[in-house]
Amino acid sequence: MNHNRPETSRRETAEPKLRSGASTAGITANDRLRGWLLHHREMAAEAWRRFMAAPLSSAMTSLVIAIALALPAALYVGLANFQQAVAGWDGQPQISVFMDKRARPQALQQFAGKLEADPLVAEVQEVTPEQALAEFEAQSGFGDVLDGLQENPLPTVFLLRPASANQAELETLAQRLRDSALTDSVVLDVAWVQRLAQLTALAQRLLLGFAALLAVGVVLVVVNTIRLHIESRRDEILVVKLVGATNAFVRRPFLYSGFWYGLTGGLVAWGLVMLGLALLSGPAQDLAQSYQSSFELRGMGVTTMLLLVGGAAILGLLGAWVAVMRHISGIEPR
């Protein structure tokens, strides 16, 4: 009886060691993360292989996405170039002050000094009658007719650039100038500035609406494409679900397929826009030179290109997500 006690004690001391060894051999969080990342990499590679295995259908789907994305992208680039073209114009309104022809030169000088000291006036430019007549003669081509005039009919004009574009301050300044005894007429040229700002705002709103509409179209194209992929692999999905695969496991390759469709479509859209700009740059430069302007068409910057391609990839991913959430859960083994 006493000889059996050491064996029992040895068994009792051996059991806790066996349990501690089993606990240290478990899967850690790092192992799970590593396996999760490895599976995502494999699914991304598999989706790309399937994408390249059907080049014609993949290219057609990517081209449809590219055309839908290239249209708003081209409009955006066109609007940016338009804003660049008008950036050289004076964005501030201008006030033209036509002086009374009977005003003496000394009075005109004092009036100009008051204008320069006015806090509502940022810049004053004087156009003398001789300068105005010479400019009119150069632009109109009526030099022979103007030479027959006995005296210069044009008055002195002060061109004012207001310090502020506030409508109330502009009206106050213009009314104060009209009340002066030395002025004959005051013209507040602010309508074209307001119309240009309103036109730009309208174009931006239309661009946003058009882009949103075409983005929905891109998502629907990807949804339909991924739905066809799911139906073609229904038997494969049933088999992997029979062995215990979850919906998250099954939908990953389809999500990556949508990602690749969007990414390639965005790259093709960028190429189409740049090709169009290359074809238009020559005629646009010739037109600018005819107006003695140094304007040149500008393409997409790196940031805009990344936004286009990244947004396309996100739209493809979103379309794939909608497709798999709607169809994967309905495929269950019986």
Rank of each mutant, 00 (worst) to 15 (best):
A288Q: 05
V190F: 11
K101T: 14
V64C: 09
T264H: 12
Q131G: 09
R233P: 06
T8S: 10
A269S: 10
D179N: 13
A278Y: 03
S232V: 09
A320K: 03
E12I: 13
L287A: 15
G299T: 06
V127F: 15
T13C: 06
D100S: 15
L318T: 09
L255A: 01
I65N: 07
S140F: 07
G266F: 01
L228H: 07
L307Q: 14
A174M: 05
R205A: 14
A112W: 01
V222W: 05
D147R: 10
L255G: 00
V64T: 13
Q131W: 07
E12V: 12
E46N: 14
L33K: 11
E137V: 06
F210E: 14
T13D: 11
L242T: 12
K17M: 13
R104Y: 04
S58C: 01
L177G: 00
E236L: 14
V145I: 15
G262T: 09
R102F: 08
A212D: 06
A212W: 03
T225G: 05
N166P: 12
G258Y: 01
L318H: 00
A197C: 03
L206I: 11
T303N: 08
V222L: 11
P153H: 08
L199C: 05
F111D: 02
E296F: 13
W321R: 14
A312N: 01
W260M: 03
I67H: 03
V273M: 02
G276E: 08
R176W: 06
G330P: 03
L159Y: 15
F210Q: 13
L146P: 00
